[in-house]
Design a protein around this nucleic acid. Structure first.
Length: 984
RNA sequence: AGGCGCGUAGCUCAGUUGGUUAGAGCACCACCUUGACAUGGUGGGGGUCGCUAGUUCGAAUCUAGUCGCGCCUACCA
């Protein structure tokens, strides 16, 4: 082993070996005892690169996977990527734009080829990065959501749902992205509060004779939509306006007459209590229109009131042709009429919109309308107003509600069983609270718009004849056959593709080969656990549950472990625009400050932001980021995996765990130095175990129990903490030190030496297996060297058995792989030894005595146990406390003036002559006495309370009594000591 | 508007069904280059657990209220 810990050298090497030797593949179940354990990776987007969220998420999954694999489960962690329809299409379109082309120049097929080419080149970036994280994914089963097999699954699901009437086509208002020219689902729209205006517009009454006011005032945040108004609504009980219900107002700038209708949707308190109704451009107005569409005054409006004024670009229509080319595809007049039952007699939309607005963008139209209203004295006032603006999560464009033909999944019938599965515990959320979020959404679920007007994705398996009738089937041939359509009948496939989440929803079973009934499907479905962040409970988790139950008749996973989102150390979300992103790979490899600054400011549109980010980065990382290695990063992620929602990532933690790796490395180095080429008892021979040997073994077992319990409960932070604590504070800080006096003592017997060496290697070997799921590389590297010394043979630690510590540390069977048994006596003895040593050290440190100076020690008030323990451990104590001599005083012997430490009732005395300052020792004792007195006071308070003694459990009372007795003894002892010294 | 989460040491976080002197890492102070490790060792300082009331023999932990921060849902033009 190298003298110094160098993660880079070992990491690369081991990952390649593991992958090459097929260690990531499931073990299978040849012996009939291996339970299946399966995790499906949440497929990362092919356009993406590894971010901290991935790093965290994959650390958790890999740790679970390695843990279960070592425990003998038939373990599969399956990788794959998501085609990410819109995101990917945008990436490649941007490339084309740079070449001065658009996707339309290439045509659909060539464009898709181009995307596939791009995927071959760049799409593997993230899987390479996953490998760097040490992820033990079975790459031989890697899937991609656009694979043939996946397409088949998607098609099958679509057709079956359609056959059952759970997929339908409808003309509805959808969230339309006017930049990307596609519909998006509710979930892909992010509404945020923005500053805007509330315009109060005057709509003149048509017949104001004797009716009081001459106009109604409507307030709107979107004046441009007035061109599509169909009515003005007031609350039916609003006395201010009740007399006007049924009257007409003149729609300014257009001359159209629209009715005043009554609807209790209107809030009389808001604005003037008059609400303009624009049913084709507002979801709520559409709802109002549906209730009133049969009223004559509405139905006689153009298009029955459903007046769509926008083109797909969100510009005002400028020609009659626009009426038939909005949405995403041209439709003829008859079809439109049939679909909506809306009469098309009369004028085209462009003819009812004044020509000065034609072709204007929605915001230009807004400006002009406000200007003209103002000019005509029809603008009452303009108020500043905060409003929720819906934007597409990909394009950032303001989403326009637009009437188009789309495909929908009727979600209600799927949601019922999905809710039940969580209610009855078939699926458990961890932490449990997240089920509330799930129920909340599932109980208010809306039909899911699944069609997208883009090219990259699963094309919808539907064909149209020339009359526009639609046929759904697995292929054109199947459609013809099913519906008896003649071969010469012209059919054209739907141009749209499916929402990416539609294929993701099938992920837990499509990856296993469904719709074929493969062995993998039979073995690994339902999968064991889904590990993901809470941000996609709606997007993904809920939909997988619905689809799994529907098509597999069983839940897709038994548990959902929801973890937090990784933020920066101040709790800020990491984002490119904030310039606070950390790249896990940079934490592994390290990065120079300049490179980091460049990376963070690259592509910044606003120079101001770039400057700010640069400044912040230079402040946060004055020396760049040092290289920490994968294991340190993984251990950090694990240590942060508590139940909270936010994970604030602090670089200091990684540094601490990098040091931990280094500690482990050096400890191994020490162990090897003392055991390699030496007899560690692998081949038999008498072995004598010291109290220290037994003690560390017992502590190892306790640690392993904690780790196993923690892993089973998804508390990786507790597992990490237990491993850290044991390794550093017990194995390294104490046991390695305790081994030194044995190994260096010429008087040690062969059996003693063998016992110590054996314990050194066996505990280390077992510890490495315990830690391996969290820190795979360093444990493998060390294990390779240590295992043979512990008498273990194997190709790799990752295929070794996970430690099974004996539950009962006194009575467990002999010959456990985790080492011999400890035992209570050994533990107590070691506590005594440690107290002794610490006591001397405290005096030494408190008195400013050089560590190198050997001290004479006297023991007073010793009992037989003390003497026996001293006998056995004298050499150890002398070595670790650096004593010159240890002498037991008999009861009648007077002790010289000394500094004192207490070990139970025994006094450890260090004579002060020439060494120790009286005042310092007085102060030390006084402080100690005060502390003890405080505690005595607290406990006395408890015990003198009769209610406590009466009502508290006996064990608790006894504990307090024992405690106070101990403290009293110590206190008396200390007081006495102070008394003596004060007389000096 | 509704729902949820968080508030513990200077910072980042643990704290299991209420019962030790409330812990860890980093940072801080002093001492130490002793032969695994200065990415280290030894010793030490630092918290009225956001606030208030209640339940209880006993509250960081349970209940109610309150303040602060954050998130997610929602149709207020």
């Amino acid at each position: 082993m190298d003298k110094t810990y160098n993660p880079h050298v070992i990491e690369q090497k081991w990952y390649e070996t593991w992958e090459k030797d097929g260690h990531f593949a499931p073990a299978g179940n040849a012996n009939g005892e291996n339970k299946p354990y399966c995790i499906m990776i949440p497929p990362p987007n092919i356009t993406g690169s590894l971010h901290m969220g991935h790093g965290f998420n994959n650390t958790v999954m890999d740790s679970l996977t390695r843990f279960h694999r070592m425990r003998g489960d038939d373990t599969l962690w399956q990788p794959g990527t998501d085609h990410a329809g819109i995101a990917t299409q945008m990436v490649v379109e941007r490339q084309l734009n740079a070449e001065g082309k658009t996707r339309h120049d290439l045509g659909r097929e060539a464009f898709i080829d181009r995307i596939r080419d791009w995927k071959e080149e760049s799409g593997g970036n993230i899987t390479r990065q996953l490998r760097r994280m040490g992820s033990s994914l079975d790459w031989s089963r890697e899937r991609f959501t656009m694979d043939d097999g996946m397409s088949k699954a998607v098609q099958e699901v679509f057709v079956r749902l359609h056959e059952e009437g759970l997929i339908y086509r409808g003309k509805r208002l959808v969230n339309w992205d006017p930049v990307l020219h596609t519909a998006v689902s509710d979930l892909e729209v992010l509404s945020e509060e923005e500053n805007g205006h509330l315009w109060h517009m005057r709509y003149p009454l048509v017949d104001s004779q004797g009716k009081g006011s001459e106009y109604l005032i409507v307030a709107t945040t979107r004046p441009e939509t007035m061109l599509g108004d169909a009515a003005v609504a007031v609350h039916p009980e609003d006395e201010r306006y009740s007399h006007l219900i049924g009257q007409f107002v003149e729609l300014p700038l257009t001359g159209r007459k629209i009715p005043v209708i009554a609807d209790d949707y209107v809030d009389p308190e808001f604005g003037t209590g008059c609400l303009k109704i624009t049913p084709a451009h507002d979801f709520n107005d559409y709802g109002v229109w549906q209730k009133h569409r049969d009223e004559k005054a509405i139905s006689e409006q153009p298009f029955g009131g459903l007046i769509n004024i926008f083109t797909p670009d969100a510009c005002i229509k400028s020609s009659p042709a626009d009426d038939f080319s909005w949405g995403h595809k041209a439709r003829d007049k008859d079809q439109l009429q049939r679909a909506d039952n809306v009469p098309l007699e009369g004028k085209a939309t462009s003819e009812i919109i004044p020509s000065e607005f034609h072709g204007l963008d929605r915001y230009e139209a807004r400006k002009l309308i406000v200007k003209l209203l103002d000019k005509n004295d029809l603008l009452e006032k303009t108020d500043k107003h905060k409003l929720m603006v819906p934007r597409g999560d990909r394009s950032g464009a303001v989403i326009e509600p637009l009437l188009t033909d789309q495909w929908y999944v009727k979600v209600g019938p799927l949601a019922g069983p999905a809710i039940k599965a969580v209610e009855n515990g078939d699926i458990k959320f961890v932490p449990d609270n997240w089920k509330n979020t799930y129920f909340e959404w599932m109980n208010n679920i809306e039909d899911w718009c699944i069609s997208r007007q883009i090219w990259w994705g699963h094309r919808i398996p539907a064909w149209y004849d020339e009359q526009g009738d639609v046929y759904v089937g697995r292929s054109e041939a199947e459609v013809r056959e099913k519906h008896g359509l003649s071969a010469d009948m012209k059919l054209s496939q739907d141009e749209d593709v499916l929402d990416t989440w539609f294929s993701s929803a099938l992920w837990p079973f499509s990856t296993l080969g469904w719709p074929e009934n493969t062995d993998a499907v039979k073995t690994y479905y339902p999968t064991s656990v889904l590990v993901t962040g809470f941000d996609i409970i709606f997007f993904w988790v809920a939909r997988m549950i619905m689809m799994g139950l529907k098509f597999m008749g069983d839940v897709p996973f038994k548990e959902v472990y929801i973890h937090g989102l990784v933020r920066d150390s101040h709790g800020q979300k990491m984002s490119k625009s904030k310039g606070n992103v950390l790249d896990p790979i940079d934490l592994i490899d390290g990065i120079e400050l300049e490179a980091l600054v460049d990376k963070r400011t690259a592509g910044m549109m606003q120079p101001k932001m770039a400057t700010k980010i640069e400044k912040q980065t230079r402040k946060d990382f004055p020396d760049g980021i040092p290289s920490f290695g994968t294991d340190a990063l993984r251990f950090t992620f694990a240590s942060l995996a508590s139940t909270g929602r936010d994970i604030n990532f602090d670089l200091g933690r990684v540094e601490g765990y990098r040091n931990f790796c280094n500690k482990l490395w050096n400890a191994a180095n020490y162990v090897l130095m003392n055991t390699e080429d030496k007899d560690c008892g692998q081949n038999g021979g008498e072995v004598e175990l010291s109290a220290a040997d037994k003690w560390i073994t017992a502590r190892l077992h306790q640690t392993q129990q904690t780790v196993i319990r923690s892993m089973e409960g998804y508390r990786l932070d507790h597992a990490a903490q237990a491993i850290y604590d044991f390794t550093w504070n017990e194995y390294c800080a104490w046991y390695l030190e305790l081994s030194k006096p044995v190994l260096t003592n010429e008087k040690s017997s062969e059996a003693q030496l063998r016992g110590t060496r054996q314990t050194l290697v066996r505990v280390l070997e077992s510890l490495l297996r315990t830690a391996h799921p969290l820190m795979p590389y360093i444990t493998e590297e060390i294990w390779q060297k240590v295992a043979p010394l512990a008498g273990v043979e194997g190709a790799t630690i990752m295929r070794e058995a996970y430690p099974e510590p004996p539950v009962d540390k006194v009575n467990a069977p002999e010959g456990s792989r985790e080492g011999p048994l400890g035992g209570e006596d050994a533990i107590h003895e070691m506590e005594w030894v440690k107290e002794f040593i610490v006591g001397v050290r405290q005096i030494r440190s408190g008195m400013d005595i050089k560590p190198s100076k050997p001290l004479p020690v006297l023991l007073q008030n010793t009992n037989d146990t003390d003497k026996a323990r001293l006998e056995r451990n004298q050499n150890t104590i002398a070595f670790l406390a650096r004593t010159e001599s240890i002498n037991v005083l008999s009861a009648e012997e007077e002790a010289p003036e000394s500094a004192t430490a207490l070990v139970g009732e025994m006094k450890v005395l260090i004579p002060m002559a020439g060494l120790i300052d009286k005042d310092v020792e007085m102060a030390r004792l006084t402080k100690e006495i005060e502390k003890k007195q405080q505690e005595v006071g607290r406990i006395e308070g408890k015990l003198s309370n009769p209610k406590f003694v009466e009502r508290a459990p006996e064990a608790v009372v006894k504990k307090e009594r024992d405690k106070i007795a101990d403290i009293q003894t110590a206190l008396n002892s200390l007081k006495e000591q102070r008394e003596r010294i004060s007389k000096m």
